[in-house]
Amino acid sequence: MNDLTAAQRQFGDGPLSRAAAIVYRLLVVELLLLAGVLPGLVPAVLLARDPSNIPFYAACAIPIGPALSAALYAIAAHRPDLTDLHPAADFWRGYRTNLGGVLRIWLPLLAGSAVIAINLAYFTAAGVPGWWAVLLVCVAVGAAAWGGNALVITSLFRFRSRDVARLAAYFLTRTPGATLGVLALLVVAAAITAYASEAVLALAGSVLALLLLRTSRPMTAAIEKEFTR
């Protein structure tokens, strides 16, 4: 029995096995992520890219929050052992566990982002001062960075929604490198959507989730050290 256990550990601990384990997890998580966002992805792809459809795009984006949260949870639960892989179980556990908390963050964020997008889309017709557009863009950027932090925190930790909101805002300046990383990923995601399609972005979902976790590591390490003990 000891020899068998040792052989299994040796099989699951090598560099090739570790690489295969993370690739397998990312592939499974990607498939489940696609399944989770499919109810919104299909109508989003069919919608015309017109400002009048902004509210419908926001509605189509509702499934993204819970699915992305589950992906973050499943990837964070990764162990570099090819003999101990349960990515599908981790994904659905994260989905069920985080659903309520994520929606309490995600829905207000989508609603606020839609209002800002509509104001910017019809800015000329509104006849408001130019500085108002600059202010709206700054608010949108700050909200996007805050939302990225809040999504990671909700996915990995068990805090009340108000505490998630406070921590997400606090770490915008506490870990500026992580904040810039989140914004960079959002720029990449926006560029993929603009120059390709929402479907292409969805196909890169698990990789973007992995990069978001890596980018947010300073924040999650600080939270684990200072707020969970």
Rank of each mutant, 00 (worst) to 15 (best):
T179E: 11
H86D: 12
A61Q: 12
Y73S: 02
V182S: 14
S155Y: 01
S206W: 00
T154H: 07
L72Q: 11
I64K: 07
A21F: 10
P129W: 09
T83N: 12
L31M: 14
R158C: 11
A58Q: 11
L68N: 10
F91Q: 04
A196E: 04
P51F: 01
T124Q: 06
A190F: 05
E226Q: 15
W132G: 09
A221D: 14
A221V: 13
N119L: 12
V28H: 09
R104K: 09
L103W: 11
F157L: 08
A184E: 05
N2Y: 05
R25Y: 06
A133F: 10
S155P: 02
F56V: 09
E224D: 12
T179Q: 11
V42F: 08
S206K: 02
A48Y: 05
V188S: 10
I118F: 10
V164R: 02
G127L: 05
L201A: 15
V188E: 00
Y57Q: 05
R162A: 09
A19G: 12
G181N: 01
A150T: 00
A67W: 06
A61T: 07
L180K: 11
S161Q: 15
L201P: 05
A6I: 07
M219D: 04
T228F: 01
G36T: 07
V141M: 09
V37P: 08
F157H: 02
E224F: 11
A121V: 15
A191W: 05
S206H: 03
V115I: 15
S161A: 14
A44H: 05
S161F: 12
L99Y: 03
P15T: 02
I153M: 03
R93S: 15
A76T: 12
A74D: 00
F11K: 12
L16E: 15
Q8T: 11
R25P: 04
T220I: 12
L201V: 09
E224M: 08
Y170Q: 09
I22W: 13
R49F: 07
F123V: 04
V187P: 00
D81G: 03
C60N: 06
H78R: 14
A70F: 00
R104F: 06
G94D: 02
I153G: 00
D90P: 01
W106Q: 05
A143S: 13
P51C: 05
Q8W: 11
V187F: 03
R25M: 09
L46M: 08
A20C: 08
V182P: 01
A19W: 10
I75L: 15
L212N: 04
R104Y: 01
N53A: 13
A140L: 06
I62R: 09
W106V: 08
G100Y: 12
T175S: 07
N2E: 10
Y195I: 11
Y195S: 13
T173W: 13
G130L: 14
P55F: 04
H86I: 13
A143V: 14
A88L: 14
I192Q: 03
V187D: 04
